[in-house]
Design a protein around this nucleic acid. Structure first.
Length: 545
DNA sequence: ACAGACCGCGCC
DNA sequence: AAAGGGCGCGGTCTGT
């Protein structure tokens, strides 16, 4: 069963059931208390169809209402327009929302009548009779039609089933994102404080530097014989090293490491601690940790590759150094599960490269590659393959091309497609943005540079986006299969953390394993490649891996 | 004084 | 071993 939801002001709204064909069935239901109405219907486990989960669901959660299944018209639209090669086109969706709330839609989101391309919102009226429920239903129905194909280029065949799986996973992801933003990641302020104090010294007064940081800054200044040197200023640091007779283009850590100078070691130590202090120090905690939980705002499918983003708190970059502060609450455990070597395994499955699939059929893909082709040199195999997926060049590249021709051909085809302005897709049909007209304009050198840049992007996109497909499906499956009391508290590209009552932790870990098996089958089909998840049941996040 | 570009680094 | 993909954030730098 499907029910369309259109919220109105002050918690009111309208519901309309749809049949399997997407046609309205039964009467419209107007309610002053949308949360209560949804709570009541949720007993039948409908799929809720609405314009924008991120704008509707947090309010429901606040009222204590959770739902199992949703269809997010906005995410579906982004996916379908992208698939049709029409990334970023303005559509009628914002207008539906705005008009439902009595607002004028922003000018840049108003449909452009002179655009003669078929729209997903063909019939959106511009008069005052506008009916947001009708428009929402029309948008949903339009999305059930087969999507248009891009005229210029069709990179891979994707079935409607695959697109629908992507939309379902994105929609479930949006639910999970709202839930996780509300739940938050358990965070022990006292443990965090110990970590900071040990590394930096006691918390300094506002605008002050911690003692250990100041000591390192002084040491760097002394060893470069530059009083009052600001180690945060790249320009000052470079000038100081030049005065010392040492060449330096940038202040990146790897470049500094090549220099033989007594200031290098304290400078690197300063950079590392300064990063901890500014990015995850006391001020960060004041801003983001409340009542024992770190609550960032998660945004599902926000990246063009389908990866999630977060806003605020840098939740996808929690450094290893502070993960010890993530501790399960009393009577609970953290189930930390991460997909090992996800991207190379996805490459092996997508390319159906026999040799690489063989290496990916067991535990350590890089070690197997090393045995097969690199005289046991695992580091060379790993760096070589990662570099090939990112568009770098290593001595290992020639060997990889010879030993794993299908895998390398997939990457190189994606790269050349991008270089010539084409688009590429993930396994479920997530499509990279089209090159803008004139994207490679300019002098030849510059044009070549832009082509190479786009080639590296599309080369990586097919892998990163397909890995994101897999992870999104995994999360969608896991979200509804966790045991009672277990909650998703963190998701980071290829890793999930579940907070569960101790007696349910093993069941939660089993649910993760099952979700991974199912996600592999749904996304990658019949493949010898194993997508391994390591699950650890721990008290502290730092104990995992 | 402020805004936006750029850098560098954390995570994947 | 090379310095390749994606992101968010806090710092400096630059232009107004």
């Amino acid at each position: 069963m499907r029910i369309v939801v259109v919220p109105a002001e002050r918690g009111a709204g309208t519901l309309q059931a749809l049949d399997d064909a997407g046609q309205p069935t039964g009467p419209q239901e107007h309610t002053d208390d949308l949360s209560a109405a949804i709570r009541q219907h949720e007993a039948d486990r409908p799929r809720w169809i609405w314009a924008d989960t991120a704008r509707i669901y947090p309010g429901l959660l606040k009222q204590g209402v959770t739902v199992q299944r949703a269809y997010d018209i906005g995410l579906a639209e982004a996916a379908l327009l992208g698939y049709a090669g029409r990334w970023g086109e303005p559509t009628g969706l914002a207008a539906i929302w705005a008009r439902a709330h009595g607002e004028e839609p922003p000018a840049d989101e108003q449909p452009t009548p002179e655009d003669d391309q078929p729209r997903l919102f063909d019939d959106e009226p511009t008069n005052r009779d506008f009916d947001p429920l009708e428009a929402t239903i029309a948008a949903y129905q339009a999305q059930r039609e087969p999507p248009a194909q891009p005229k210029a280029y069709e990179p891979t065949q994707v079935t409607r089933r695959q697109l629908d799986l992507m939309i379902a996973a994105d929609s479930a992801g949006a639910l999970a994102a709202a839930e996780m933003s509300r739940t938050g990641l358990p965070w022990r302020a006292d443990v965090h404080d110990q970590i900071l104090t040990e590394a930096l010294g006691p918390r300094p007064p506002a605008h002050g530097r911690p003692t250990k940081l100041q000591a390192l800054a002084d040491e760097v200044a002394a060893k470069l014989q530059t009083p009052r040197l600001n180690p945060d200023s790249a320009a000052e640091v470079i000038r100081a090293f030049h005065r010392a007779g040492l060449p330096l283009e940038t202040t990146r850590a790897w470049e500094l490491k090549r220099l033989d100078h007594p200031a290098v070691e304290p400078l690197l130590a300063y950079k590392s601690l300064a990063r901890l202090f500014t990015a995850n120090g006391w001020a960060w905690r004041d801003a983001w940790v409340k009542d024992g939980r770190f609550r960032p705002e998660y945004v599902a499918a926000a990246v063009v590759s389908g990866r999630w983003a977060t806003r605020g708190g840098g939740a996808l970059q929690i450094p290893k150094a502070v993960r010890a502060a993530v501790i399960a609450e009393p009577g609970h455990r953290l189930v930390v599960a991460d997909a090992q070597q996800l991207e190379p395994r996805v490459l092996a499955a997508l390319s159906r490269d026999d040799g690489m699939a063989k290496a990916a059929a067991h535990g350590d893909l890089y070690a197997a590659l090393a045995e097969q082709s690199f005289r046991g040199d695992r580091a060379q195999a790993k760096v070589g393959l990662l570099s090939a997926m990112y568009g770098g060049a290593t001595p290992a590249l020639a060997t990889l091309r010879r030993s794993y021709p299908a895998a390398l051909a997939l990457l190189e085809k994606a790269a050349t497609t991008g270089e010539s302005g084409g688009i590429v897709r993930s396994v479920l049909g997530r499509t990279c943005p089209a090159a803008r007209p004139g994207w490679d304009a300019g002098p030849e050198r510059q044009a070549m540079q832009k082509a190479r840049d786009r080639g590296r992007f599309t080369r990586n996109f097919v892998i990163q986006a397909s890995a994101a497909d897999w992870a999104a499906v995994l999360l969608a499956l896991l979200r509804t299969s966790l045991p009672d009391g277990a909650e998703l508290v963190f998701f980071q590209h290829d890793e999930v953390v579940v907070h569960a009552p101790t007696e349910q932790a093993q069941a939660a870990a089993d649910a993760v394993d099952q979700a991974a098996v199912q996600a592999t089958r749904l996304v990658l089909g019949d493949t010898p490649v194993r997508l391994l998840l390591s699950t650890a049941i721990v008290e502290s996040y730092a104990e995992a891996k």
